[in-house]
Each structure stands twice: as structure tokens, then as C-alpha cells.
């Protein structure tokens, strides 16, 4: 591929917006907000990706899918760059994706409620605990309770609805 036939970065963003998250396939990796940059270094396409959690096993899968997608579209010189800072936050999840999460059965994050881990008035701040109202993604009821701080993946907490009894995941803030 010569320089004048390289796909422009907008086109590349469009391709990447078709790559599903391997764990939550209803949303894409661009909606998740983990693609931090698409640019050329000479004729090499550099895609900058930030991990959601340090130990997220989906990270290597996502990198593989990105590479596959770009290769399928004829891009030959690819460089995937990992960027830790600024650290990923659930605030970067697109609004449209939040509705898709809900429809899929996962309560979307409630912005501004990330754990701080700090001492507040002599005790550990438990913002994510009893003070937080997470609506059931199935029936919409606010009558829910937290079963565990960690759900099916590190990014989620396990909840249950007292009205319709649905157990569900809540995508917690980070």
C-alpha cells in the first residue's frame, strides 16, 4: 500500500467501531472508550489502546481483534500501543452504549460513584455499598441490593432485584 492509498484515520475509526467487546459483545471497543488514538507514523498505522483493568483477560483478545480487523481491510503495517495514562474510566463509555448494556441485562455505571478507598469520618468510604441505588435492568425497580462487590468480571458487581428477583451485573464505576 503506497502513501496515497493509505486509508484515512476516519475510515480506520469506522472499522474499529465495528469490533465488538469480547466480553460484552453488544457494545464495541470504541463505545467502551478504550481506543485513545489512531494516527500514522510514516506509513505505519499506530492504534493506541488503554486497558480497562490491569488484569483484564480480554485485553489480548481485543488487540488480536483490532489487528485482524485492520488486516482484513488491507492495512499491512500496524503498531498497537498500550497507554496507561490517563487511566481508563467508565465515564468514557458512550451514552448509546449505556442503553445497549441495559437492554443486554447489565446495569450501566452511575457516573461519579467510583470507589475512593479513603477514610471518611473514621470509616472506609463505601460509596458503592448501601448508599447506591442501582435500577434493575429487567424491570426498572430501584428495590435492589448488592450481592457482591465483584461480579462475573472485575469491572462488574453482582446485584439482585427484590421485586422481579432477577440477579444482574452492575458495571461499576472506575
Amino acid at each position: 500500500m503506497s502513501a496515497d492509498t493509505l486509508p484515512d484515520t476516519e475510515e480506520v475509526w469506522r472499522w474499529l467501531s465495528e469490533v465488538p467487546d469480547p466480553e460484552i459483545p453488544v457494545i464495541t471497543i470504541t463505545e467502551l472508550g478504550i481506543i485513545r488514538g489512531v494516527e500514522y507514523d510514516a506509513d505505519t498505522l499506530v492504534v493506541t489502546v488503554t486497558p480497562t483493568y490491569s488484569g483484564c483477560p480480554a485485553t489480548s483478545m481485543i488487540n488480536l481483534q483490532i489487528e485482524e480487523k485492520l488486516r482484513d481491510n488491507g492495512v499491512e503495517k500496524i503498531c498497537l500501543k498500550r497507554q496507561l495514562s490517563p487511566a481508563w474510566t467508565t465515564d468514557w463509555i458512550a451514552d448509546a452504549a449505556r442503553e445497549k448494556l441495559r437492554a443486554y441485562g447489565i446495569a450501566p455505571p452511575i457516573d461519579g460513584t467510583a470507589a475512593a478507598g479513603d477514610m471518611v469520618a473514621g470509616r472506609i468510604a463505601r460509596m458503592t455499598g448501601e448508599g447506591l441505588t442501582v435500577n434493575c435492568p429487567r424491570c426498572g425497580s430501584a428495590n435492589t441490593f448488592r450481592v457482591s462487590q465483584f461480579g462475573s468480571t472485575p469491572c462488574k458487581a453482582a446485584y439482585q432485584c427484590r421485586d422481579c428477583l432477577e440477579p444482574f451485573d452492575y458495571f461499576k464505576c472506575i
Partner: peptide, 21 residues
């Protein structure tokens, strides 16, 4: 080091909440 600490700190905030609780 600062970058790794910032990343890890967000995760550990949940650890301390859970273990203290």
C-alpha cells in the same frame, strides 16, 4: 511508576472497601 500506580489505585480502592467491609 506514577502511571501504573494511578491505574492500580483505582482497582485497589475496591479491594480495601471489600476487605474492610
Amino acid at each position: 511508576i506514577a502511571e501504573i500506580a494511578q491505574k492500580a489505585g483505582k482497582e485497589v480502592a475496591y479491594h480495601i472497601e471489600r476487605s474492610a467491609d
